[in-house]
Each structure stands twice: as structure tokens, then as C-alpha cells.
Nucleic acid binder design. Structure first.
Length: 500
DNA sequence: GGATCATGTCTCCCCATTCA
DNA sequence: TGAATGGGGAGACATGATCC
């Protein structure tokens, strides 16, 4: 069978890291070393590097076909586009194509076809967001369904290229096909998960620190929204005992209360509004210089996303809501990508792999508190477009785990940026990141629940915790949001407390 | 010594997403 | 539209530390 000819590749201005990774992969991939892992920070441009590698391997005659696997339809659609543009070949899996792009979900059902393809031709397998496949540490056994399929597929493809910015799994499992080495565990590491005693050996690593230094990614500013005067009023649902009041000096302190969960807090109007207000203000400032700058809100679930979209619309914002239940969600997302619409609200459809470089502000209101997810979401806003968009902003409720993740991100950066600066209220000069004309953080205090008092009371171990939508008087949570904590790698490795 | 709080583990449930 | 899948969180339970 005569395969379609490889077209000459257009001139591609590869970034330095992409060129280095490409060179290394081309030198390294061989029958003796058929697997290559590129661990590059989200937003660095892994897919373009992979597409050029695929093109070079096709041109050299080392492979005949390219298979791409990704986590969602949105991601594989972009991958197919990139592969086709770079190779000049159809990559849609149809008649005459030299490759195809598929979701991990569809891998199992298509496995026999892929095995047959691999038996007849030399295939390059690109598996993106590799952390979706897992296996037990120290063995290729105990794999999840996608991991099992990959292990079967591995036997009939020529080369594999794994791409991930976060090549680890929250459940402690390892990634199939890749190399792990037993690692010496220090005393400090003992608290880490035991699976980390085996350390992944990537073939090429490109960190967020390097990406920011090289101007590939924007400098991330992470703002942790907190409150130093939280008052919780607990009332027995049957009213047998008088209400009890407790005060909390911070959100982490509040969240230690057994009746208050992080997810509850996210749904409370005041913290939600506080986070969104910060995001709206920041985006408005950015859009003065870059009219196409966009904002992303990651919600906890679809209902939450709808509430957020309504809230933003109520503030006069132009909002695009995209969830798995939205008709033509992918078309809407594509339209958002190409428009200059201000906000997109989503749950999981824009959490990883999705490339919308004009996004520069994100409000993280997801219930998920894993480092992997946190970093993936940050990756949605750090992709640079040009010379004048060198910063991006993530607004988060000051929850202990999320705070720790923010600190770890800052730890990726050089020490000379680690200067603690406490900025008092009286400071008149603009805060870093707010530009030369924007004011300091808004000083208005926000009341969590002022007069609206809960009708529907959630009883938790005899304690009633009100919700913001309630209307009768049984319990209240009141507070004044007068204490914000700012966090930025540029001026602090630690929390800079702003006493407002 | 009892009450309370913190922590870790396990199981079950819910949710988002995709596919047939 | 229901099933499959991955994933996270809440709750139950056990254990140990701390407080009064």
C-alpha cells in the first residue's frame, strides 16, 4: 500500500526548549528505548513539540502513522488541528489519513483496530496528559482500564511519546510504560505518600520556573482570599438550646469546625462573590490594555457553574457557560476562544489541556483540592500570547491545602524573588500586579450573611449551618471580609498579610 | 478520667465526561 | 439515554494527643 506523501513542513519558530526536547527525542528514540516522556509545565507548548517530532519521524521514515490519545474531545480536537498543520497530513483517522486522535474513553473499544494497525505499520503513539493512565508501583499490574489498554497497545507500536505537566496521580499509582527508580526517602519525605518512594524518571523536564524565565509562560500571581473576623452562630434545629456563637480568625480556622466544609463555603454567596469580585476587577484592569483578555471560573458542579454565571451576568459581565450538559458545548467553547468575550464558566471542560491563551484571570471555585488539579487549572492562564501579557492572576479561597499548593508553585522560583513584604492598609501606592492606575484592593467590607437568615438549615451533628439563600431566622454565619492575603512569587514566597 | 480534637484509613456516593 | 470510567469528597470508624 502506498502511503500519502509527507509534505514539506512550513517554517516553525520552535521555542528553545521545544528544539532541545525535539533533538533529544530524535536522538534517544530507538528500538532499545522506544518510550520518551516530556514533562513540561502546562502552557509551555508540548503539543507543538510533539507534532514536530511526529513530522520528523514521518519524514525520516521511522514511523508510518501517528496515534494521539487525549483526555477530552476538546483536547484531541486541538491536537488533531496542530498535527495536521505541522505535518501537512490528514490526522482525522479517516481514509487517507496518516494519523488519528482519540480519547482515552474510546481507546478500549478501538484497541483491536489499533493492534492491527501496529502489526502492519510502524506507529508513533502520543499519549497526552499521561496521568490519566495508572498502574501499581513496582509492577505493570494493577492498571486502570486505560492503563491496561496502553500496556496492550505498547506491544504493537514502534515509539511512544508521553506528555504531561503533572506526571503523577492523586491515588498514588504510577504511570504505565514509564521508568521509575527507587528513591532514597529522607526523614522529611516520610510524610509523603509511600508511592513517591519510586520516582519517575522523565526524559526531558521543562519547569514553570524555566518557562517564566524564558518568557514562554506568564508570571502567576495567586491571591488567597481570607477573612480575619468570621462569626458563626450555631442554633439547634429544634430550638431547645440558645444559639451559640463562635469566632474564627481565618478560613482555615473556620474549616476545622466539623459543621463547615470547604464545598459549603464555596457555595456561600459572600466568599463566592468576594473571589469573583476580585477577578472581575482584575480582568477589567487587564482589558484596558488588552481588550481580548479573558477570565475563567472553575466551578464545583454544573449547578454551581450556573449560579456563578448568573452572578456574573448580574454584574453586567459577558459570560459563556460551558459544561457537559450545555448543548453544542464544544462549539460554544470554540466561539469563546475566537471571540473577545470576557468570562467563561466551566466545571471540568476547561480544567486541563485546553488552550485559550487569552485567558489571564481565573477564579478557582472548584471543590477539588488536589495539587494536580490546581496546577492544571493554573496552566489554563499562564500561556503567553505576545510581549505585553507577562502576568496572570488566580483568585482562590484561602484553604490550607490550596495555600500549600500555591507555596509549592512559588518554591519553583528563584530565591531572589522570595522577599516577604507586609503591605499596610495606608500604603497609597498600587499593589504589585494592579498596574499604575488601579487602586489597592477594595476596602469595602462584605457581609457573609447580614439579614438574610436561613430557612433551610442543614443539621450537622446538632449544629445548624445557614446558607446564604435562606430567609427565616434560625442561624446565621456573619462576618466582615476585611482581611485579604495576597500571594505572589514576585514579592513573596510566603504569605504577605494585608491588613485592610 | 472523660470530653474534645486531630488525624488516618476505608468505603460509599456523587459528579463530570465520554461513548455506544 | 444509560452505562462506563475516573476522580474527589463526605462520612464512619479507630486511634492517639490534649485539655480540663
Amino acid at each position: 500500500m502506498k502511503l500519502p506523501d509527507i509534505q514539506s513542513s512550513p517554517h516553525l519558530p520552535l521555542r528553545d526548549w521545544q528544539q532541545r526536547c525535539l533533538t533529544q527525542a530524535l536522538q534517544q528514540l530507538s528500538p532499545f528505548q522506544p518510550h520518551f516522556l516530556c514533562q513540561a509545565t502546562p502552557g509551555a507548548g508540548k503539543m507543538l513539540m510533539a507534532a514536530v517530532l511526529a513530522h520528523q519521524l514521518l519524514e525520516r521514515g521511522d514511523v508510518d502513522f501517528v496515534l494521539y490519545l487525549g483526555p477530552s474531545k476538546e483536547v484531541i480536537s486541538r491536537a488533531e488541528q496542530t498535527l495536521a498543520e505541522v505535518t501537512g497530513l490528514m490526522m482525522n483517522g479517516k481514509l487517507g489519513a496518516r494519523g488519528g486522535c482519540y480519547t482515552y474513553q474510546s481507546l478500549w473499544s478501538r484497541l483491536p483496530v489499533f493492534q492491527q494497525l501496529g502489526a502492519q505499520y510502524r506507529v508513533l503513539l502520543i499519549w497526552d496528559e499521561s496521568h490519566h493512565a495508572g498502574r501499581l508501583p513496582g509492577t505493570q499490574k494493577g492498571a486502570n482500564v486505560w492503563g491496561q489498554a496502553l500496556l496492550i497497545l505498547e506491544r504493537c507500536v514502534t515509539y511512544t511519546l508521553a506528555l504531561s505537566g503533572t506526571p503523577w496521580r492523586t491515588d498514588g499509582k504510577c504511570l504505565p510504560l514509564l521508568r521509575y527508580l527507587d528513591a532514597q526517602v529522607s526523614v522529611d519525605d516520610e510524610e509523603d505518600d509511600s508511592a513517591l518512594k519510586q520516582r519517575l524518571v522523565p526524559d526531558f523536564v521543562y519547569t514553570l520556573q524555566e518557562a517564566v524565565r524564558d518568557g514562554v509562560c506568564r508570571t502567576p500571581y495567586i491571591w488567597l482570599i481570607d477573612n480575619s473576623h468570621i462569626q458563626l452562630t450555631m442554633t439547634h434545629a429544634k430550638g431547645k438550646k440558645p444559639p451559640k456563637q463562635k469566632r474564627f480568625s481565618s478560613i482555615p480556622h473556620l474549616l476545622r469546625h466539623p459543621g463547615i466544609g470547604y464545598a459549603d463555603l464555596l457555595r456561600h454567596e459572600a466568599p463566592m462573590a468576594r473571589v469573583l469580585t476580585q477577578g472581575v476587577a482584575k480582568l477589567a484592569a487587564l482589558r484596558q490594555a488588552q481588550t481580548s483578555a479573558g477570565g475563567l471560573v472553575v466551578a464545583s458542579d454544573i449547578e454551581h457553574a450556573e449560579e456563578i454565571a448568573e452572578w456574573l451576568k448580574g454584574q453586567g459581565e459577558d459570560v459563556c457557560l460551558v459544561t457537559s450538559q450545555t448543548p453544542n458545548a464544544h462549539a460554544k467553547l470554540q466561539a469563546f476562544r475566537e471571540s473577545s468575550q470576557a468570562w467563561v464558566v466551566a466545571v471540568g471542560m476547561i480544567s486541563e489541556g485546553v488552550d485559550i491563551p487569552r485567558l489571564r484571570v481565573c477564579c478557582y471555585l472548584s471543590r477539588i483540592r488536589t495539587e494536580q488539579y490546581f496546577r492544571q487549572v493554573l496552566g489554563r492562564i499562564i500561556r503567553r500570547m505576545g510581549l505585553h501579557d507577562d502576568d496572570c492572576y488566580l483568585f482562590v479561597v484561602n484553604e490550607s491545602l490550596l495555600c500549600r499548593y500555591a507555596e509549592r508553585i512559588a518554591d519553583d522560583f528563584p530565591d531572589d524573588n522570595a522577599v516577604v513584604r507586609v503591605i499596610p492598609l495606608e500604603v497609597a501606592s498600587p499593589m504589585p500586579g494592579y498596574g499604575n492606575t488601579s487602586p489597592v484592593m477594595p476596602l469595602d467590607s462584605v457581609t457573609l450573611v447580614e439579614e438574610a437568615i436561613p430557612a433551610s438549615v442543614t443539621e450537622v451533628a446538632g449544629i445548624a449551618f445557614g446558607t446564604s439563600t435562606a430567609t427565616t431566622a434560625t442561624s446565621t454565619v456573619s462576618s466582615q471580609w476585611e482581611h485579604d492575603v495576597a500571594y505572589s512569587q514576585r514579592f513573596s514566597k510566603h504569605l504577605a498579610t494585608l491588613e485592610l
